[in-house]
Amino acid sequence: MSDSTAIAHGAPADAHEEHPSYLRHHFNSVEQQSDATNFAMWLFLLTEIMFFGGLFTAYLIYRNWYYPAFVAGSHQLNVVWGTLNTVVLICSSFTMAMGVWCAETRRRRGLVLCLSLTFILGLCFLGIKGIEYREKFEMHHVPGQHYSLQSFLDPQSNPEVYAEYHDKPLALDMARHTEIYFSLYFALTGMHALHMIIGIGILGFMIYRARDGAYTAGHTTFVENFGYYWHFVDLVWIYLFALLYLISRHQ
């Protein structure tokens, strides 16, 4: 023990002056370090693709099995909120991308501004998602003990949706399968929202550090890789929006 500390202390004191402080000793160069980190980030994102892919596959299989229930279920979603949220998320991806550029070109104020805008847009997304969830609770469309089949057995009981889609009443056994649609709806959007919440948390941490110039001194790997994560969450939503809101409007 004492020997190893002695060796560590015995290292030449000026060893750190030969390379930037953020270059780890097990890498040859900054480029190699950033290549390795980007590669690792992509491996992580691929596991995320597989994770969401499993949920998407479950959705597609059940949609194929209980098609009328899934069509009726998706008619209960509001396309306007969904579109608005898509736009909010695309804007946040844009501000995040601009943030990465600001970090790379060492613009501290620009970076803090971009990260703050991304943070606010992320919260907007969650707020709109909250309005939609509240609507589901009020309509008793949340799977569980208080789930109500009324909207599907008697579509005219919900005049707004009926005016838009003129859904025919479902048979009882098919109507009960709408609960599967909403289970998958909450699983998919809930996991997506969890990713957003984690992302917003990390954004807060990054804004705090960026104000002291942590990412504008040449070491931008963290901002870049967080950007990949944020864009990935946007990408999942692009597919969620199409699958949950759009593809069943005319059946």
């Binding site: 991806s93 870049e224 864009h231 692009i238």
Partner: peptide, 12 residues
């Protein structure tokens, strides 16, 4: 198409 744009340009 949108996902491809995001991956190619936003995700570099």
């Amino acid at each position: 198409g949108k996902a491809t744009l995001v991956v190619l340009y936003f995700m570099h």
